[in-house]
Simulated assay, not measured.
Amino acid sequence: MKLEIVFDEKDKPFQKITLDHSSMLKGSFSKVIYSSLDGNACHGMTFMLGKDYVAFTDESNWITGYCGGTQAIWPNMEFSQEFLNTVKQLSPNK
């Protein structure tokens, strides 16, 4: 994964995330997604290198944020692994 902070025409920062999409579960597999950095968790979140995520995006490849289901997967937390397993079970790309 590659992370970049970029700015829109109004100088608002956002994250450009280039993914290793070898384990994409569903949808059109865009290798680049975007996340707002405006502090509103419903519009985006901060991604970190080395972490696994379930990221839900809209048709423009902007993540839906925590309110839309996007979240980090924490390997040692049972609820996180249960969430990932549920998403995998519902995925058409098994």
Results as ranks from 00 to 15, higher is better:
Met1Asn: 12
Met1Phe: 14
Leu3Asn: 07
Glu4Pro: 06
Glu4Thr: 05
Ile5Val: 14
Ile5Phe: 01
Phe7Gln: 07
Glu9Ile: 12
Pro13Trp: 02
Pro13Asp: 05
Pro13Ala: 05
Phe14Arg: 02
Phe14Asn: 00
Gln15Gly: 08
Gln15Phe: 05
Lys16Val: 10
Leu19Trp: 14
Asp20Gly: 04
Asp20Gln: 09
His21Ile: 08
Ser22Thr: 13
Ser23Cys: 06
Met24Gly: 06
Met24Asn: 15
Leu25Glu: 01
Gly27His: 01
Ser28Tyr: 15
Ser28Cys: 04
Phe29Gly: 15
Lys31Ala: 11
Val32Cys: 09
Ile33Cys: 01
Tyr34Ser: 08
Tyr34Met: 02
Tyr34Cys: 05
Tyr34Lys: 00
Ser35Met: 02
Ser35Leu: 10
Ser35Glu: 05
Ser36Cys: 04
Leu37Val: 02
Asp38Val: 09
Asn40Leu: 02
Ala41Ile: 01
Cys42Phe: 13
His43Asn: 15
His43Val: 07
Gly44Pro: 05
Met45His: 12
Phe47Met: 03
Phe47Ala: 10
Leu49Val: 03
Gly50His: 03
Lys51Val: 03
Lys51Arg: 14
Lys51Leu: 04
Asp52Lys: 13
Tyr53Met: 10
Val54Met: 11
Val54Thr: 09
Val54Ser: 01
Ala55Cys: 08
Ala55Gln: 02
Ala55Asn: 06
Ala55Leu: 10
Phe56Ile: 07
Phe56Trp: 13
Phe56Leu: 00
Glu59Lys: 14
Glu59Cys: 03
Trp62Leu: 06
Trp62Ile: 01
Trp62Pro: 07
Trp62Gln: 07
Trp62Asp: 01
Ile63His: 02
Thr64Phe: 07
Thr64Trp: 08
Thr64Ser: 08
Thr64Tyr: 07
Cys67Glu: 05
Cys67Ala: 03
Gly68Lys: 04
Gly68Val: 12
Gly68Met: 06
Gly69Asp: 05
Gly69Arg: 02
Gly69His: 00
Gly69Ile: 04
Gln71Met: 00
Gln71Tyr: 06
Ala72Leu: 00
Ile73Pro: 14
Trp74Phe: 15
Trp74Thr: 06
Trp74Ser: 09
Asn76Arg: 05
Met77Asp: 15
Glu78Gly: 03
Glu78Arg: 08
Glu78Lys: 12
Phe79Ala: 06
Ser80Arg: 01
Ser80His: 05
Ser80Val: 07
Phe83Met: 02
Phe83Glu: 04
Leu84Cys: 01
Leu84Ser: 03
Thr86Leu: 14
Val87Asp: 01
Val87Cys: 06
Leu90Cys: 13
Ser91Tyr: 01
Ser91Asp: 01
Ser91Glu: 04
Ser91His: 03
Ser91Thr: 08
Asn93His: 13
Asn93Val: 10
Lys94Met: 12
